[in-house]
Amino acid sequence: TTTITTTNEEDARRIATEWKNKGYTVHVEKRGTTFRIEVR
């Protein structure tokens, strides 16, 4: 599992989409101002 964190919502969406397009399972969680993107 790879975890990526960013405070930028646009980055979070872009990163999540990129990983999904590669065939990975992506889970995005917002904690306060931080977005945690888990890639499996």
Rank of each mutant, 00 (worst) to 15 (best):
T1W: 15
T1A: 11
T1D: 07
T1C: 13
T1R: 08
T1E: 07
T1H: 12
T1I: 15
T1G: 10
T1Y: 14
T1P: 10
T1N: 09
T1M: 13
T2H: 14
T2S: 08
T2G: 06
T2C: 15
T2W: 15
T2L: 15
T2V: 14
T3L: 14
T3W: 15
T3Y: 15
T3A: 07
T3R: 07
T3P: 04
T3G: 04
T3M: 11
T3F: 14
T3K: 05
T3Q: 06
T3E: 07
I4Q: 04
I4Y: 15
I4H: 06
I4V: 06
I4K: 03
I4S: 02
I4R: 03
I4A: 03
T5M: 12
T5C: 12
T5H: 10
T5I: 15
T5V: 13
T5P: 02
T5F: 15
T5E: 13
T5Q: 08
T5S: 07
T6R: 03
T6S: 06
T6K: 03
T6Q: 03
T6C: 09
T6E: 04
T6M: 06
T6N: 02
T6D: 02
T7Q: 11
T7I: 07
T7H: 11
T7G: 08
T7A: 10
T7D: 15
T7W: 10
T7E: 13
T7M: 10
N8T: 09
N8K: 06
N8E: 06
N8R: 06
N8Y: 05
N8H: 06
N8G: 05
N8F: 06
N8C: 08
N8I: 06
N8V: 07
N8Q: 05
E9C: 10
E9T: 04
E9S: 07
E9H: 07
E9G: 07
E9P: 08
E9N: 04
E9W: 14
E10Y: 09
E10L: 10
E10S: 09
E10A: 12
E10K: 09
E10T: 09
E10Q: 10
D11G: 04
D11P: 01
D11N: 07
D11Y: 11
D11F: 10
D11Q: 09
D11M: 10
D11W: 10
D11C: 12
D11H: 09
D11E: 14
D11A: 10
A12P: 00
A12F: 03
A12Q: 02
A12I: 03
A12S: 05
A12G: 02
A12E: 00
A12T: 04
A12Y: 03
A12N: 01
A12R: 01
A12L: 03
R13M: 14
R13Q: 11
R13I: 14
R13A: 10
R13P: 01
R13G: 06
R13K: 11
R14Q: 07
R14H: 06
R14K: 08
R14N: 06
R14G: 04
R14M: 08
R14L: 07
R14T: 06
R14P: 00
I15Q: 03
I15G: 00
I15N: 01
I15M: 05
I15F: 05
I15K: 02
I15P: 00
I15H: 03
A16E: 07
A16L: 05
A16C: 09
A16Y: 08
A16T: 05
A16I: 11
A16M: 09
T17Y: 10
T17H: 09
T17Q: 14
T17L: 14
T17N: 12
T17W: 13
T17V: 09
E18V: 09
E18W: 15
E18A: 10
E18L: 13
E18N: 07
E18P: 00
W19Q: 02
W19M: 06
W19T: 01
W19F: 09
W19L: 08
W19N: 02
K20D: 04
K20G: 07
K20P: 00
K20Y: 09
K20W: 08
K20N: 06
K20I: 14
K20T: 12
N21H: 08
N21E: 11
N21V: 08
N21S: 11
N21I: 09
N21K: 11
N21L: 13
N21M: 13
K22I: 05
K22L: 11
K22Y: 05
K22C: 08
K22E: 04
K22M: 10
K22H: 05
K22S: 05
K22A: 09
G23T: 01
G23H: 03
G23W: 02
G23Q: 02
G23K: 02
G23D: 02
G23S: 02
G23N: 03
Y24P: 00
Y24T: 01
Y24N: 02
Y24E: 01
Y24M: 04
Y24G: 02
Y24R: 03
Y24I: 02
T25A: 10
T25V: 12
T25I: 14
T25Y: 12
T25G: 05
T25L: 11
T25N: 10
T25Q: 12
T25K: 09
T25W: 13
V26Y: 01
V26H: 00
V26C: 01
V26W: 01
V26G: 00
V26Q: 00
V26L: 02
V26M: 01
H27C: 12
H27N: 10
H27D: 06
H27T: 14
H27E: 07
H27K: 12
H27V: 13
H27P: 00
H27M: 11
H27W: 12
V28L: 07
V28P: 00
V28A: 03
V28D: 00
V28C: 09
V28R: 01
V28H: 01
V28E: 03
V28T: 05
V28M: 08
V28S: 03
V28F: 06
V28Q: 03
V28I: 13
V28Y: 05
E29K: 08
E29Y: 14
E29I: 13
E29V: 12
E29A: 08
E29P: 00
E29F: 13
E29N: 06
E29T: 14
E29S: 12
E29M: 10
E29W: 12
E29C: 14
K30W: 07
K30P: 04
K30H: 07
K30D: 05
K30N: 06
K30T: 06
K30Q: 12
K30G: 04
K30C: 07
K30Y: 08
K30A: 06
K30V: 10
K30L: 11
R31H: 14
R31N: 13
R31T: 13
R31M: 14
R31F: 14
R31E: 13
R31P: 02
R31W: 13
G32H: 04
G32K: 04
G32N: 05
G32D: 06
G32A: 05
G32F: 04
G32I: 03
G32R: 03
G32C: 05
G32W: 03
T33R: 10
T33A: 12
T33L: 13
T33Q: 13
T33E: 15
T33M: 12
T33K: 11
T33N: 15
T33F: 11
T33C: 10
T33H: 12
T33S: 13
T33G: 13
T34G: 08
T34C: 14
T34I: 14
T34H: 12
T34F: 13
T34Q: 12
T34N: 08
T34D: 09
T34V: 14
F35D: 00
F35S: 01
F35E: 01
F35G: 00
F35W: 15
F35T: 03
F35I: 07
F35Y: 14
F35L: 04
F35Q: 01
F35K: 01
F35V: 04
F35R: 01
R36M: 15
R36Q: 11
R36E: 11
R36I: 15
R36P: 01
R36S: 10
R36Y: 15
R36V: 15
I37Q: 00
I37V: 09
I37H: 00
I37R: 00
I37Y: 00
E38N: 09
E38I: 15
E38R: 10
E38C: 12
E38Y: 15
E38A: 07
E38G: 04
E38M: 13
E38W: 13
E38D: 07
E38Q: 11
V39R: 04
V39S: 02
V39F: 05
V39Q: 02
V39C: 06
V39E: 00
V39L: 08
V39Y: 04
V39A: 05
V39P: 01
R40P: 04
R40S: 15
R40N: 08
R40A: 09
R40K: 12
R40H: 12
R40I: 14
R40Q: 11
R40T: 14
